[in-house]
Amino acid sequence: MAKGRGARVILFNKPFGVLSQFRDKGTQGSVRPTLSSYIDVPGFYPAGRLDRDSEGLMVLTDNGALQARIAHPKFKRPKTYLVQVEGAPDAGALDALRQGVDLKDGKTAPAQITQLDPPADLWERDPPVRFRKTVPDAWLQITIREGRNRQVRRMTAHVGLPTLRLIRIAVGDWSLNALRPGAWRWASESGA
C-alpha cells in the first residue's frame, strides 16, 4: 500500500461455483474459476471467504489490518445472507436459530432471522437450484456475527431446513445493492 493513502476496498459479487481465492490450489489440472477470472487489480486480498457453492458479496482490500478487522470473528462484524431453505420454517425452528444452535464445534451465537417473500429482483443461478413440486421452500434473511466454516448451512440443517441457495448480501456496512454476479466496484474503507 502506498504511503499517504488509505486502504482501498473492492466489493465483488461472487457467482456460484467460483473459488474465493485468486489461485486454484486444488487438484492438479483442475480448471475451476477463481477471483482472478473477474478481478485484475494487483495487491488485493479477500477479507473472508465464501464457499464455492455460495454466492454474493465479498470484500477485498489491499490493507492487511483492514482485512483482519473485516474477517476475524473477534471483531463480530455482522454478515447478512439471503437463504433459500427446503421446507416450511415453523416458529420453533426460527426461534432456535435466533437463540443459537448446538453444532459439533459448539453453540452458535444468536442470529437475527426474518422470513421473507421470494426476492423479486434476484438473478437466476447457473446451474439452477433443484425444484421439487412436492417439497415447499422458503426464504430467510439471516445475520450472524461469527464466521465458522459453512455456519449458516449447518445452522439451517440443524433445525431441519437444508439450505438450497445462500447469497451474502452484506458485510458490516458494505452491501451488494444492485451489483450483478461477476461484477465489482470500488468502495470506501468505512463501508458507508
Rank of each mutant, 00 (worst) to 15 (best):
I39E: 08
R185Y: 09
A93Q: 13
Y81Q: 01
A138M: 13
D62N: 13
L179V: 11
Y45T: 11
V83P: 00
P73N: 09
S190M: 01
R150C: 02
L97C: 06
V159P: 13
W174E: 01
E124L: 04
F16K: 06
R5F: 02
G182I: 01
S36D: 12
A47G: 14
K74P: 01
P33N: 10
D173T: 08
A68Q: 14
L164V: 12
L140M: 07
A157E: 13
T34M: 03
L94G: 11
R49N: 12
V129Y: 05
A192H: 13
D24A: 00
T134H: 15
F16H: 11
K107L: 03
E124F: 04
F16Y: 15
S37P: 02
A68M: 13
T156S: 00
T61G: 05
T143K: 07
I10L: 15
L35R: 00
G92Y: 05
R185K: 14
K76P: 02
A7H: 10
N13M: 03
L82F: 13
N177M: 15
K14C: 04
R69P: 07
D24G: 05
A88T: 15
P78V: 04
V59F: 04
D137P: 05
P42R: 08
E146Q: 14
K79H: 02
L140V: 02
L82Y: 12
A7V: 09
G92L: 11
R98H: 05
T114R: 12
Q151L: 09
N177S: 14
L94E: 06
M1D: 01
Q141F: 04
T134I: 08
L166K: 04
P89I: 10
R132A: 09
G29N: 10
P162A: 07
T34N: 07
A192G: 00
P127W: 03
T34H: 02
P42D: 07
